[in-house]
Amino acid sequence: MAANELKDLIPMSEWLPGIKRPLIIAGPCSAESPEQLMQTAKEIKVLGQVDIFRAGIWKPRTFPNNFEGVGSIGLEWLREVKKETGMPVATEVGSVKHVFEAIKYGVDLIWIGARTTANPFAMQEIAEALQGVDIPVLVKNPLSPDLELWDGGINRIYAAGIRKLGAIHRGFSTWGKSDLRNTPHWQVPIELKRIHPNLPIIGDPSHICGNRTMIADIAQRAMDFNLDGLMIESHCNPDEAWSDAKQQVTPTRLGEILSGLKIKTEHTSDEKFIRTLDELRSQIDMYDDQILNILEARMKIAEKIGLCKKENNVSILQTARWSDIINKMVEKGAGKGLSDKCISEIFQSIHEESINHQINVTRD
């Protein structure tokens, strides 16, 4: 489905009364009891910074016998929260039954989780269940950094007639150790925004981080990348939460995070210009970080090469090999619009650094 077919989306500001940019959605990972839900909601309401209260009712877990949500009874608790606090309420759906139950209990916004987005059959069934429904629907990215799969799920919901439509960036699963639970791969939501400029994208720093200590930094990064809002998990007693305890913050901390966000509007009154410039600069920062990571990985390989040369009594400098690399890179660079001078200087510096790393590891 072509990108321009999403042009008639309803602006986020018209989804619900009082909605503004950045849209803030907050609440516990899971509804655990009516008392826990109401206490958290009241503490969040006092902040005056949250647009929509969220709580998980059904929780897809990897292993059986883990807490998988309280089920539909939690929707009654959400309805009481809405009645008592006046805040709109939201929850995740993963099946046709969930959609029908959420609508029956008056949920104001639903989102489709990452595991469900990865399944086109499930997405199609949910899309068909949403036909004729007039509530905002957000689609989380799939577990893998597959832009087409994410876009395809969004298009299925759009094809069902949903025009209050948005996406949630919650990061992507990765193998190996990392400080983050899910790798952001910021270039994926950035590309989605390029394809669909009118599609709101909400950042989910809680799931990207997996721990509460980094949420403020990732939330600010989401704003720097011009995302349209945030979904942050907040619990009245996060250390005792029944699911994802480490990534939830107290309502007090939530208020601090939101108050500390920098939404830049300096140097000009043209907000579109500011957002565009900040988004482009943030992309530059992202690619610079990637370059550093690649260089680090390259130097580690160079060190292994140095050790191999040492074991086989081979000299560090291989002139013919280096000349071949330079010529090849200059030719490739020209095809990418990069000057010979630029490529030669960059790879000369890389080569010198590689030689230094090899020398360091081969010293007796």
Rank of each mutant, 00 (worst) to 15 (best):
S243H: 03
A114Q: 13
Q124R: 13
A219Q: 01
L277R: 05
L47Q: 14
S354H: 12
I359A: 10
S282V: 06
M223V: 14
E92P: 07
M214D: 14
L130H: 02
W77R: 02
I218H: 05
I359V: 13
V99E: 02
L9Y: 02
E148I: 05
V89K: 02
M12W: 08
L180K: 06
A129S: 02
P189G: 01
P64I: 03
K328S: 15
P184V: 07
S178G: 06
M223P: 01
I346Q: 13
D204S: 04
A129W: 00
V50A: 05
G176Q: 00
R115Q: 03
V70W: 02
E125R: 10
D8P: 10
R170H: 00
P136D: 01
L75I: 02
P28K: 05
M1H: 14
L147E: 07
D151V: 11
V188E: 13
V137D: 06
N356C: 08
H207W: 04
T250L: 08
K83G: 09
S178Y: 02
V137T: 03
I208G: 01
I218C: 11
S234G: 10
T213N: 12
R54I: 10
D289N: 15
P251R: 05
R321N: 08
S315M: 15
K328P: 01
A167P: 01
A320R: 14
G337H: 09
A114H: 12
A245R: 14
H196F: 15
W150A: 01
D285H: 13
K193I: 05
P238G: 11
R61T: 12
V81W: 01
G171V: 10
A55F: 10
E80N: 09
R281G: 07
E125L: 09
N4K: 15
G337A: 14
H207F: 03
D134C: 02
S178E: 03
E5K: 12
G94K: 06
P60T: 02
K246A: 11
I73G: 15
I257K: 05
S144H: 06
L199M: 05
L254D: 01
N155P: 08
G27H: 03
E32A: 06
V139D: 00
C29S: 08
P142G: 03
H235K: 04
M214W: 09
I57T: 06
N119F: 06
L254M: 03
L307Y: 09
S72P: 14
L230T: 11
